[in-house]
Nucleic acid binder design. Structure first.
Ligand SMILES: [Mn+2]
Ligand SMILES: [Mn+2]
Ligand SMILES: [Mn+2]
Ligand SMILES: [Mn+2]
Lengths: 241, 241
DNA sequence: TTAAATTTTTAGTCATGTCTAAAAATTAAA
DNA sequence: TTTAATTTTTAGACATGACTAAAAATTTAA
């Protein structure tokens, strides 16, 4: 029965893990949870004592298996609630994060499972992020590429955002982009890395900055290979592929 | 921006007001929020300082208009979420209270209003209790009587419970009663106040204790007079009837 | 109307989680 | 490799909300 604060720290560590950091530094974590390094340091001591992280002083932390399970559970609830807010209450995808940030802490396994069923066991949240299942593992997700790295002259479809902050989502709105937008890269500008993109719905052409392109996941309409993201410690051989 | 704890205290005071107490005593409130008189006393000082209650030391408290507004808002969210849990997630009416007790603290006016719309602007929660509207006032509710006080030989319909605790709701299940049950009082036993009740669906007769009968609201199938429950301080003349 | 019982408040602790400022350890630069 | 910069931890405070035990006020009983 972790507190709300503990849950937020664990979830933040998980998200940093998923961004590639094997060891999470105190300062980085502090930024993520919007607190100070001092507070974070104190929290890490506690998380370590309770067996949710492995913490070597002055070097980073890693989630333990049990900490990873808790964090995946919060992430699951966060993304399920985001689905509910967008699909059933009609919120825009840039309005749901803060509300889900609170809803995710309502503690009831039964609630999460029933909500999951009510939503039709979605695989992705409104931002294209994978939703963990009740077992604490991600459901399979289609392969995807950063728009910045995608090939030219091939129809692409926007399937996710790397950066879920409201400011970025609203900027996408200004550019006329959202999940499902079909587009084709027509030109790469070597000078600043901008892409000239054709919007396949209206044949409109537009210049898009590399900063935006590096924050968008696109699908190349390949047959979808299945990928799972287990916890690094998880050597369970019976795992389904 | 009251804390979760403050919200629980204010809501508890409101519910005691609605049970007829004009002044709420420290001990009674402590029992309701499941804390001690000492903790409650400290909280009341704080609530008074912030202008949410009027508190004369050693005599009870009353909600101020602003405190009443906050409490009605929490109550609104509590009951809306209960509707959602029962009607859309398939929970039983005796499983939703504790979950709603947490959901009610998720702070977003927009969320409450959209949920309200999603549910079709319900007037009553799954326990037959009135749901406050976005203006902080109860919506109109049909007149109702305690089963204990209802007349004999008249078809009645169960429309609400006075006591929403899970134990009581489950006991109702054992008796085969829930919201909507049609019944008729056939005999009053003077000795212990028990009622002999005919269930109109299956013509079954059953003895029901006065303790249960004093916890059930029934409708007499009269044309529904409209009642509102404004705050006692509210002398606003423009109020709609 | 005084004494006893009850209720309420105060006093003193504790747990959680936050902060700033200072000290310690690590990492980067010279 | 010694020094400088950066990161992390510790020290010391504070806010919130809970508790037990003791004192004060009120209510009830004698
Ligand atoms: Mn959160
Ligand atoms: Mn999301
Ligand atoms: Mn509550
Ligand atoms: Mn209810």
């Amino acid at each position: 029965m972790p507190t709300m604060s503990v849950e937020n720290y664990l979830k933040a560590i998980l998200s940093l893990h998923e961004e590639g950091k094997v060891q999470v530094s105190t300062t980085e974590l502090a930024k993520r949870v919007e607190s100070t390094p001092a507070s974070t340091s104190a929290m890490l001591r506690k998380l370590g004592e309770r067996g949710w992280v492995e913490h070597k002083r002055y070097h980073g932390v890693r989630l333990t298996k049990s900490g990873h399970g808790i964090a995946m559970n919060i992430l699951r609830r966060h993304r399920l609630w985001e689905c509910f807010l967008v699909e059933h209450l009609g919120f825009d995808w840039d309005q749901v994060h803060d509300i889900a940030e609170e809803l995710e802490h309502v503690d009831s396994k039964e609630l999460a499972n029933r909500l999951d069923a009510f939503l039709g066991f979605p695989k992705l949240d409104p931002h294209g992020d994978a939703i963990p299942g009740p077992n604490g593992r991600f459901r399979s997700v289609a392969a995807r590429t950063l728009l910045l790295d995608a090939p030219r002259d091939l129809e692409l479809i926007v399937v996710g955002v790397v950066d879920g902050r409201d400011a970025f989502l609203r900027h996408l709105g200004v550019l006329g982009m959202s999940l499902g937008t079909r587009l084709t890269i027509r030109k790469r500008h070597a000078f600043d890395g901008s892409l000239e993109i054709q919007f396949n719905d209206d044949d409109d052409m537009q210049m898009v900055s590399p900063s935006v392109c590096s924050r968008l996941w696109v699908d190349q309409n390949n047959p979808e290979p299945i990928i799972e993201f287990p916890h690094p410690d998880d050597t369970d051989e019976k795992r389904k592929v």
